[in-house]
Design a protein around this nucleic acid. Structure first.
Length: 421
RNA sequence: GCGGGCGUCGCCAAGUGGUUAAGGCAGUGGCUUGUGGCGCCACCAUUCGGGGGUUCAAGUCCCCUCGCUCGCCCCA
C-alpha cells in the first residue's frame, strides 16, 4: 500500500481486540489491590543516563535496542525500554523510600528497537511489580506468588516457574572469572554467538540455545558451586517459602538475566503454549539498583509480565473473548424532526444508564431495522414524521414477535426500558 | 544486525505465460415509497505491495526495493 502505515513493530489494537486487554488489565488490578500493591505511573520518556546506569551499558537492551534521541534542549532522551529503572528513579526522587517499604506496580508501553516476531513488538506492553525495601527471602516468594496467581487466574495454561540464584555481586565476580577461563579453554568447541559473549557477558553463554554448546556446558563450572554460604542459605529459604506456598518450580542452574541489576533470586515463568518467545514473566532481586541510581541502599525484588505474549496465550486458549455488549436500545429515525427527537431519546437513555446506539444513516427503515437486528439489541425505538409530530417513539421488541409495539413519549420510553432490564 | 517463508478487493481466497482477474464474507442499492432476521437481483480490484527487465504476451519468469511473518541474537 502506498498509504500511510504504522511504523514497523508498532501495532494497532482494533476494537475487536481491546476487550481482552481490558479484561486482563482489570484482573491484574484486582490482584494488585488485594496484595496491597499500589500503582505508580512514570513518564514514557526519561534521561538516557537512567537506563545506561540502571540496566547496564554493556547489555543489548542499552547497547542496541533503545529509542534514543536528542531533544530541542540538547538532552539525550530515551523511550523507556523497561519499567524498573523509572520506578526506582521516581521512588528516590520523591523520597518514598524514607517512608518505609514500597509495594508498587506499573503498566504501560515500553520500547525496544528489535526485529519483531511472534510475541515481540517494538512498542510492547508490560505490567510489573516492584517491592522496594524488602530484603527477606519470603518477599521473593511473595512477589512470585502474586505473578503466579495472576497468570493462573487469567487461565494461562502450561505454566512453569524456573528459578535460580545468581548469588551476590562477589559470587558473580568470582564465578565469572572461573567461567571465562573455562570457556576460553573450550573456545573452539563453542558456537559463534557464544564465542562473542565470552568477553562481553560470559554468563549468558549458560543459556545458549545451541544444543552442542549446552552439551559441552555439562562439564563447565557451575554458578551454584560458586555461591558463598550466605547466598546458598538465602536461596534455600526462597525455595522453602515457595514449597510452603505450594507453588511448583524447577531449578534451572543456567537461568541468567540480561539486565545487569539482578542478583540472588532470578526467575522466569514460561508457557509451553508459546513459540520461541516462551517467557511470559521475568524477574528477580535487585538489591544494588537503588543505591546505584543515587538512592539509599535498598533491597528490592520485582518482575514484569509481557502483555503481548499473554494476549497470544489467552486468545488461543479461550478463543475470542466476548465482544463488547450489545446495546440495550437501538434507535431508528428518519426525517429531520424525528432525528432530533431520536437524539434526545439517546441522551436521556444514556443518562439513565442504558447502552444506546443511534442509527444516523437516514436510510430506509428496512435498512435501519437490519442494522438494529445485527447490533444484537433487544429493543428498538422508532421515530418517523408521525411520531415526531406527536413527540413520541415506537418501542419495539426485536426478539419476541408476540410483543405489541408501544407509542410513548421519550421519558416514558426510557422508564419503560429501565423497568424491564 | 543475520537467516527462512509470504505479499491478488476491507477480510478469506482461486489463479501453475495467452484475449474481459473465480468465489465466499462484509458493505451499498433494490425487490419491500415506514418495519428487521430468510430469500432473490444489482453494484463493489482497468488491477494483482512498488520499480525495472525478459517476452508477440506476465498476477504468473528474472532482478531490485518495500512490507508482513517466523526464527536467530536478546528479552517480557
Amino acid at each position: 500500500m502506498a498509504s500511510l502505515q504504522s511504523l514497523r513493530g508498532m501495532v494497532d489494537l482494533l476494537p475487536e481486540h481491546t476487550p481482552l486487554w481490558q479484561q486482563l488489565e482489570s484482573t491484574a488490578r484486582e490482584h494488585f489491590r488485594r496484595a496491597a500493591i499500589r500503582e505508580i505511573r512514570t513518564p514514557l520518556l526519561e534521561a538516557t543516563e537512567l537506563f545506561a546506569r540502571g540496566i547496564g551499558e554493556a547489555t543489548d537492551v542499552v547497547g542496541k535496542e533503545m529509542y534514543t534521541f536528542i531533544d530541542r534542549g540538547e538532552r539525550s532522551c530515551t523511550l523507556r525500554p523497561e519499567g524498573t529503572a523509572s520506578v526506582v528513579r521516581a521512588a528516590i526522587q520523591h523520597g518514598l523510600l524514607a517512608q518505609g517499604p514500597q509495594r508498587l506496580w506499573y503498566g504501560g508501553p515500553m520500547f525496544r528497537y528489535e526485529r519483531p516476531q511472534a510475541g515481540r513488538q517494538r512498542q510492547f506492553h508490560q505490567i510489573g511489580v516492584e517491592l522496594l525495601g524488602v530484603a527477606d527471602a519470603t518477599s521473593d516468594a511473595e512477589a512470585i506468588a502474586v505473578a503466579w496467581d495472576l497468570l493462573a487466574d487469567l487461565g494461562v495454561g502450561g505454566l512453569q516457574l524456573e528459578i535460580n540464584s545468581l548469588g551476590s555481586a562477589d559470587d558473580r565476580l568470582r564465578y565469572r572469572a572461573e567461567l571465562v577461563s573455562w570457556l576460553e579453554a573450550h573456545h573452539d568447541q563453542l558456537d559463534a554467538d557464544s564465542q562473542k559473549c565470552i568477553s562481553t557477558n560470559p554468563l549468558r553463554v549458560l543459556d545458549s540455545k545451541n544444543a552442542d554448546t549446552q552439551a559441552l556446558l555439562a562439564g563447565a563450572p557451575t554458578l551454584a558451586a560458586a555461591l558463598c554460604g550466605d547466598s546458598h542459605e538465602r536461596f534455600s529459604q526462597v525455595r522453602q517459602a515457595l514449597e510452603a506456598l505450594g507453588i511448583p518450580f524447577v531449578l534451572n542452574p543456567r537461568l541468567v538475566r540480561g539486565l545487569d541489576y539482578y542478583g540472588h533470586t532470578a526467575f522466569e515463568i514460561t508457557s509451553s503454549q508459546l513459540g520461541a518467545q516462551a517467557t511470559v514473566c521475568g524477574g528477580g532481586r535487585y538489591d544494588g539498583l537503588v543505591e546505584q541510581l543515587g538512592g539509599p541502599a535498598t533491597a528490592a525484588v520485582g518482575w514484569a509480565i509481557g502483555l503481548e505474549r499473554l494476549v497470544l496465550l489467552l486468545s488461543q486458549a479461550q478463543g475470542a473473548i466476548a465482544a463488547a455488549a450489545a446495546p440495550d436500545l437501538y434507535v431508528i429515525s428518519r426525517g429531520a424532526a424525528a432525528e432530533r427527537l431520536a437524539l434526545g431519546l439517546c441522551r436521556q437513555g444514556r443518562q439513565a444508564g442504558l447502552v444506546v446506539e443511534r442509527d444516523a444513516s437516514g436510510a430506509a427503515f428496512a435498512k435501519q431495522f437490519k442494522r438494529a437486528d445485527k447490533s444484537g439489541a433487544v429493543w428498538a425505538a422508532v421515530a418517523g414524521e408521525e411520531e415526531a409530530a406527536e413527540a413520541v417513539v415506537v418501542l419495539k421488541h426485536l426478539r419476541d414477535p408476540q410483543r405489541q409495539d408501544r407509542r410513548l413519549p421519550i421519558g416514558a420510553a426510557v422508564q419503560e426500558l429501565l423497568g424491564r432490564e
